[in-house]
């Protein structure tokens, strides 16, 4: 390393200093404090006085069936919504990838659900799901498919699927746009060559297109999975935290803020953090070769 390179490396640290300081202060410190709180009996009304209780909160947590229900709900929601979003998103991307007049309009139309606040989409769907006056029940009853109104968000057998449906509606555009961007990077000549050779379109898709866009799809999948694991807004509004849909984030916040039990709530938060960290670490390790290549140019 020459003197110039060394000087540049030193400069790099100076340029990183502000962001690093901010992140340590607003991410690192609160995270450590939350983990610390999980070992205490801290109470929201008075965060200064608390005593150390060891792993008591975690033991209590592991004995609460509602907690395990919310873990199960979160995992089910994550797998169901991400799988549907990938399939639907890829389908929409394939359609948008065909040159057609007004593609810009289409792209804007699929972007809009992504851009609006989750709270707004939750409210709009909550109104459509309304058991008495909602448009879904009125339409289905009007056509005669159902005789009785369905309690979409209250029926424990349906409510989690109702949540998945809203998330799929809101987030498929994100997946579709990422898939579309990847599709547009596939060289046209490949298709031409395959078509000249008389390869069936379905075979072209599975043999050429899919392998080429796989890395982008995997990245989208990871982003979506980590996002789905922390789901809060949608469930908070749509089913106001009934046990049959409660997610880990909703559970943690309820104990932290509504029941003011900071110690116990922090234990739930810490559990969720550990789960996400584990998944992230696994993914980063697996994807490291790919990432390293990208970042090093």
């Amino acid at each position: 390393m020459g003197p110039l390179a060394r000087r540049r490396a030193r400069a790099a640290w100076w340029f990183l200093l502000p962001s690093l300081t901010v992140l340590l202060l607003i991410a690192g410190w609160p995270l450590l404090r939350t983990i610390g709180f999980s070992l205490t009996d801290a109470y929201l009304g008075d965060l200064e006085n608390y005593s150390f209780v060891g792993l008591d909160n975690f033991i209590l947590l592991s004995q609460d069936p509602f907690w395990w229900q919310s873990v199960q709900n979160t995992l089910f929601f994550t797998v169901a919504s991400v799988a549907l979003e990938l399939v639907l998103g890829l389908t929409i991307a394939l359609i948008l990838n065909v040159a057609l007049p007004g593609r810009g309009v289409m792209r804007a139309a699929v972007l809009i659900p992504w851009a609006i606040p989750t709270i707004v989409s939750a409210r709009m769907w909550q109104w459509m799901y309304n058991d008495l006056y909602g448009v879904f029940n009125q339409m289905l009853m009007g056509v005669g498919v159902i005789a009785e109104p369905i309690a979409w968000t209250a029926d424990p057998a349906l409510s989690l699927w109702a949540v998945v449906a809203v998330d799929v509606w809101k987030t498929t555009p994100f997946v579709a746009l990422l898939a579309l961007a990847a599709l547009q990077l596939v060289p046209r000549e490949l298709y031409e060559a395959a078509r000249v050779d008389g390869v069936h379109p379905v075979k072209i898709f599975f043999r050429i297109t899919l392998p080429l866009i796989m890395p982008a799809l995997l990245v989208a999948m990871v982003f979506r999975m980590l996002d789905a694991l922390r789901i809060f807004d949608l469930i908070y509004i749509l089913t106001s935290g009934s046990p049959s849909t409660m997610s880990m984030s909703v559970y943690a916040r309820r104990h932290l803020v509504e029941f003011q039990d900071v110690g116990y709530g922090s234990a739930a938060s810490t559990f969720l953090f550990a789960l996400v960290a584990l998944i992230t670490a696994t993914v980063l390790t697996l994807g490291r070769a790919h990432l390293t290549r990208e970042v090093r140019q």
Binding site: P30, L32, R230, A252, G265, V295
Partner: peptide
């Protein structure tokens, strides 16, 4: 240390907000 640091930044953007909730409340 560029790559590990960059991955740390990426990691922060992925962790659940509720994981820092009580610490952030105190801060």
């Amino acid at each position: 240390g560029r790559l590990p640091l960059l991955l740390t930044f990426l990691g922060v953007s992925m962790f659940p907000q509720v994981a820092v909730l009580s610490g952030m409340f105190e801060l």
